[in-house]
Lab assay of single mutants.
Amino acid sequence: DAPDEFRDPLMDTLMTDPVRLPSGTIMDRSIILRHLLNSPTDPFNRQTLTESMLEPVPELKEQIQAWMR
């Protein structure tokens, strides 16, 4: 099983494109984008959230890719 820090906190699946929300939570980009289609909010604190506020986490993405090899 993947380490917890590699798993999306909402869907508990392996992240492939991790992004940091303004709240500091790291999620998979595809999952948070799907959530934003229904509700333009951070799913953990209900603060306003837009796609432009998502910050890529390239170092975590590299760690996940290395773990998958």
Rank of each mutant, 00 (worst) to 15 (best):
F6S: 01
L37S: 12
D42K: 01
M68Y: 12
I26V: 11
R20A: 05
L10T: 09
M11D: 10
L14Y: 06
R34M: 13
L60I: 06
I31E: 05
G24Y: 03
L49S: 00
T48F: 15
L33D: 02
H35P: 00
R34W: 12
P58Y: 09
M68P: 04
E51I: 14
D12N: 15
P43W: 05
M11N: 11
G24D: 03
R20E: 03
D17F: 07
H35E: 07
R69H: 13
L33F: 06
P9V: 04
K61E: 06
L37N: 10
S39L: 07
M27F: 06
E59S: 11
E51D: 08
T50K: 11
L49A: 00
L36Q: 00
L54R: 01
S30F: 11
W67Y: 10
R20W: 05
S30R: 12
V57M: 15
V19T: 04
T25C: 13
I31L: 06
P58R: 09
P58S: 09
A2E: 07
M11T: 14
E51H: 09
D42Y: 04
E59W: 15
P40T: 10
L21P: 00
V19P: 02
Q47N: 11
D12A: 12
T50H: 13
L49P: 00
E5S: 12
F44V: 05
V19N: 01
D12S: 12
S39N: 11
L54E: 01
Q65W: 15
T41F: 14
L54K: 01
L10E: 04
E62W: 12
P40M: 10
M15D: 00
G24M: 05
T41R: 08
N45E: 06
D12T: 09
T25N: 11
L14H: 04
L33M: 13
V57T: 05
R20K: 10
L54H: 00
T25L: 13
M27L: 06
L49Y: 02
D4W: 15
Q63T: 09
L14A: 03
E51Q: 10
F44R: 02
N38R: 13
W67T: 03
D1W: 14
D12E: 09
L60N: 00
S52R: 10
L10Y: 10
D8H: 04
P58T: 10
L21S: 01
T16F: 11
P9E: 04
P22S: 03
P22T: 02
I64C: 06
L33W: 05
G24C: 07
R7L: 12
I64A: 00
E5A: 13
L36K: 00
P56G: 10
Q47T: 15
P3S: 05
D4M: 15
S30P: 11
E51Y: 10
Q63L: 15
D28M: 06
I31G: 04
I64M: 04
F44P: 00
E51G: 08
L49M: 08
T25R: 15
E59C: 10
D17C: 09
R46Q: 14
N38D: 12
M15G: 03
L54T: 01
D42W: 05
D17W: 06
I26E: 01
P22D: 01
T50P: 02
Q63S: 10
K61D: 04
P58K: 09
D4P: 15
L14Q: 03
D4R: 15
F44N: 02
I64W: 02
R29S: 07
D8K: 07
R69D: 12
D12Q: 14
G24R: 04
L14T: 06
S39W: 09
H35M: 12
S52D: 15
R69F: 11
T16G: 07
M68D: 07
H35V: 08
D42F: 04
E5Q: 12
S52P: 08
T50W: 10
T16I: 14
D4T: 14
R29N: 04
P3T: 05
D1H: 14
D17V: 04
Q65F: 14
V57S: 05
D12V: 06
E55R: 12
P3C: 08
R34V: 09
R46A: 13
E55Q: 13
P9H: 06
F6P: 14
Q47I: 09
R20D: 00
A2W: 13
R20S: 05
E59A: 11
S52K: 11
T48P: 15
R34T: 10
L21H: 00
L60A: 00
E51V: 14
R29E: 02
P9S: 07
T48E: 13
T16Y: 12
W67P: 00
R46K: 14
M15R: 00
E59V: 09
P9N: 05
K61H: 07
T16E: 12
T41I: 09
Q65L: 15
L36V: 05
M15W: 02
T25H: 14
D4Q: 15
A2G: 07
N38H: 14
T13V: 12
N45D: 09
I64G: 01
D42A: 02
N45G: 09
K61F: 10
I32S: 00
D1F: 14
A66T: 10
M68E: 09
P58C: 08
D12H: 15
E62K: 14
R29G: 02
D17T: 04
W67C: 07
G24P: 01
L49G: 00
E59N: 09
R7I: 09
E62N: 11
E5F: 12
E5M: 13
T41P: 03
P43D: 01
M27N: 00
L49N: 00
D1N: 14
M15F: 01
E51N: 07
I31N: 08
E5I: 13
I26D: 00
H35Y: 12
L33Y: 07
N45H: 07
L10S: 05
D28T: 02
Q47W: 10
M11Q: 10
E55Y: 08
F44C: 06
D42P: 02
M15E: 00
M15C: 06
E51W: 12
D42T: 03
E51M: 12
L36M: 09
S23C: 07
